[in-house]
Design a protein around this nucleic acid. Structure first.
Lengths: 198, 198, 198, 198
DNA sequence: GATGAATGAGTCTTCATTCAT
DNA sequence: GATGAATGAAGACTCATTCAT
């Protein structure tokens, strides 16, 4: 669909705000960022902010949605390029990808907090066309899980739990180093996931 | 340890603030609660607040620590009264207890959010004498896990992951009903935990 | 005078704005209505507003002028259909008409506040052709008052005072129920007016 | 009742705000005065304003109440010093006093607008002890009116109407010079009031 | 230790108005 | 003439924190 020049400009302004918001939230923490500071950084008038977002938290949610589905999406993309393997292998690959990414992006992880979630991903698939290619992945993994006897519903529930667990473990062990640093937690987590999926 | 009358009075004032804070946080959300409103509700002068807590978030942390370890502690207490069973059985009993409790206390769950964590519990054990009786539980479950071949460290890591997962699932499915209502998620979660522990 | 199609369209847009403004002023109070909300309701672009009115208060004045002279005009129209009577009778009829109307239109009364005024009416006669038929009434009542010895100027002054008093009493007793509800005030007001005119 | 030093200071601060608000409202009009400007003028911190008044309009109401009952009160005080006369004479004296005062204080009149009202006066009597001496006047005038056959209730209603009319006429003729300047309106108004009361 | 009045920085939010399309 | 995105000045209001009592 073609956007008129005006619509393109609006979309671009929205992006600018998302980017400015992300930078500031990551640098200073959500509570210490004001709408003023965001628009100042974005080089946009304060009032304009409210044409695009309801308030700071509306922007924050958009950012979290965007960033966390982006990470998952990268991981999935990478996994698709792999030679065929078992569900378990593919899943572990994705977890590993996300963990390694988060180790390098602690600030983003702090922002996403424990909001990394399969639910977010599903929502992204449904609302944002740019993730449309990933619908396919979801279908593939469902097929695989069905082969080992999961109904589609149950497949979604199990995947959901695994991703939530991934998020929790990343946050605790990477940010808080609790109960152990991530490199010690990874094998434990992997072993658990293998047990779940095999 | 006996407290002097003065110390008792101070402790009581602290409790009043914790209770007032909890009620307000639960009712209005953390961001919409001010120190003023807390002291107003507690019937205490505004300045007095700062004699007991650094700021709103200091109070909030105390509350979350207190409430979430309370829930876990109740669950564990109840499990101890059971006839002996496998680790897996005992663990599932605890998860079930927490889930049922949270179903009846959604407001508290919203506040604890995803901060239900084994880490919190460990911290509570170490700082608060009133949980001293629960140290024992920790030791018991470690013993049990060691019998099935876990080192103490790994035992702690696995328990940690299970409790984090419990917290995440409770929050998503009870509050957001995602990906399914809690009663549909419970069997799936239980099956997973059984696989992990058996 | 015939309007070109363009002029008719403009007049219609003006009417739309007047109506939207009236609805909103009445519903939310003048201070809580913005030009934005008015144009939104009118289904007209924000910038367009300024092609028709200087600002919110310009619109408000037009509305008050319009509405309050409309009420007076209806009352006078009705009085003209009466069989001939004394000035006093005719005047009381008009007051009664206005009072009964205001009882049924409290919201409008709140907006007009105490701006019901003979002066507004005179202004309307002079600026708005649609009230031209009412010029006649003014002349009739002047004639009547001249018969009982009032100069034209004094006639206008007395009528002015009576209408102002009517407005004040309506507002106080209908909206505030002060000092008494309107149905108790009406006979007192009528007695006073009779004394003035007889 | 003695006020503690603190309470005296608070009362004094309230007065300062009333005075600053009055000056600014009178000079710039209500809509063009901000809470900021009021506190700046009062030499008081912005937040302090909100310890004394809910908002700008709360302050405005206090001011109107205060000023308009002050004027009436001065007029009544002056009338009490007169040699005895008829109700009618005494009332005309009061009207005259108020009119002359308003001629010299157009700015205050603009602020009071049409809110000069017997109702305000009654409220002032009931809430503010400093007007307690004026209760007496109310009783005297009631007695006088009862002598000429008015029930107390009706007396209050008639007085109410007269004062409202006084306010309306003052505003229209002094501020707007409508329908005639005040000096031409005064005799007409007086004649009307005489008719009402005799 | 307790109080609560005072502070004033800082935030959100609205809104009239402009102007390029 | 009509539009509505953008502006940014301006205002309302909050609130953590202090400090004299």
């Amino acid at each position: 669909m073609l956007l008129s020049r005006l619509e393109a400009k609006k979309e671009q302004k929205r992006e600018t705000l998302l980017r400015a918001g992300y930078d500031l939230f990551v640098a200073n923490g959500v509570n210490d960022v004001s709408v003023s500071s965001i628009t100042r950084r974005a080089g946009i008038a304060k009032g304009t902010f409210y044409l695009y977002f309801e308030d700071k938290y509306d922007l924050l949610n958009s950012i979290i949605l965007h960033k966390s589905s982006e990470v998952l999406s990268m991981a999935i993309d990478a996994s698709v390029k792999l030679p065929k393997g078992t569900v378990s292998e593919r899943t572990l690959f994705i977890l590993d990808y996300v963990i390694e990414f988060m180790k390098d992006n602690k600030d983003m992880l702090k922002l996403i907090d424990k909001n990394l979630s399969w639910g977010v991903f599903v929502e992204a698939i449904e609302t944002d066309d740019s993730f449309s290619n990933l619908k396919k992945f979801r279908e593939i993994i469902f097929e695989d899980l069905e082969k080992i006897g999961y109904s589609q519903k149950k497949a979604e529930q199990v995947i959901f739990i695994i991703i939530e667990t991934l998020g929790s473990v990343c946050y605790s062990s990477i940010i808080l180093e609790q109960p152990s640093p991530i490199d010690e937690m990874k094998p434990v987590l992997f072993e658990i996931v293998k047990k779940i999926l095999d």
